[in-house]
Amino acid sequence: MAKYLLLKHYRGAPAAVNDVPMDQWAPDEVAAHIKYMGDFATRLESTGEYVDGQALSPEGTWVRYDGEGRPPVTDGPFAETKDLIAGWMVIDVDSYERAVELAGELSAAPGANGEPIHEWLELRPFLSHNHTAVE
């Protein structure tokens, strides 16, 4: 019973095995990929392990506080930012091993030529909100 974040990167992850940009795939390969992702989420819901999944636009803005009474400063997007998150899935599973197994399956999503992408996904445990009651 632990939550994990599966992070998918636009940039910043090591190169995938089948590393062809999505806009170079055949249209039915794109459709097959989207279907795989949808089926994966549905299957995780049926096993009682799905928590959340979201995709992010690659275009973002950097924002910071600029002092009392002043509007926040905005900047970017910075093309040189090394790490760019594409989206995530949150799972609630019984063990780290199960989390690794599921991340492996998600990384097998089909890409160019219908072959698995073998992309690197980042697996991060959530910190729990509760401190164990028994010290």
Partner: peptide, 15 residues
């Protein structure tokens, strides 16, 4: 209580 969607918990229980 376990911070998961109700649909997920319903499936966990019926499974």
């Amino acid at each position: 209580a376990y911070l998961v969607p109700e649909a997920t918990m319903a499936q966990r229980i019926s499974r």
